[in-house]
Amino acid sequence: MTSLSDTGEFIAKKYEPKGPVVLDCQVNNIYYGDFRAVRDSHIPIEKNKVTGFIGPSGCGKSTVLRSMNRMNDLIDSFRFDGSIQYHSNDIYGKKIDPVVVRRYIGMVFQLPNPFSMSIYDNVAFGLRLNGYKGDEEEMVVKALKRAAIWDDVKDKLKNSGLSLSGGQQQRLCIARAIATEPDVLLMDEPCSALDPIATRQVEELMVELKEHYSVALVTHNMQQATRVADVTAFLGVDISKGGRTGYLVEMDDTHKIFEDPQQKLTQQYIRGEFS
């Protein structure tokens, strides 16, 4: 591991979580092949809170988020150095099967990606996978309602998920992800394809979800971060050494980040000033 003091790289002041932590994410380095995408970031995801991730494009928000349920294991060149503690187990531990991790830590992706099957089957997919024994239809309807897509699709549950519009597909994917009520939900810009009304509804969903679960949310929308995130992490990009390595600049309660940021970079980013 590269020690911080001898490279002189900036390291964020440690954020002290105020409540219990569900995912304690300690990134030392994340590589894609030789490319170092993210370095030295400690990002605890607190239980029953929405944790927001903001930062310029390419700073590694998606990369960090996708590390949290081992999605990036699908990429051959990906290498994670660090640890992510989930209920006192490192999800990168040798004995842990990523498939199990992903059953508890769900994900909504940046681009809609419904399966080529009916709308109903899309949402029921996770329930069937997890061997859910209860009333499947009830859970499917509930998930569709919570994802604010029920009114759009209630008359055509048998139609293919791919026959929906982009924004509808994204909400379908949200329904699919929440149908199994995962313990932690990772959402990568879930609203970037949604109109303001649907966006509001999805935001309400996040607030509702955090009562029982925990949410990590990547967003480019500052208002959204202030509206739903309890805690916000700001990631920046370090271009000083020729690379483009992302790192945590500052993490704190959302109002603190937006009203009284401690780092100059955070201030500039939030006010929209760039050098």
């Binding site: 498939v99 990606n113 399966f115 080529s116 997919f125 996978l129």
Partner: peptide
């Protein structure tokens, strides 16, 4: 099949065979 479909299937916590039989094959 676009990569993101495979990604979605793994993201749901499907095993390799579940991904292949339940998602990739129908697609």
């Amino acid at each position: 099949i676009p990569y993101r479909v495979k990604e979605a299937a793994y993201g749901m916590g499907a095993t390799k065979w579940e991904v292949i039989l339940k998602v990739m094959l129908p697609t």
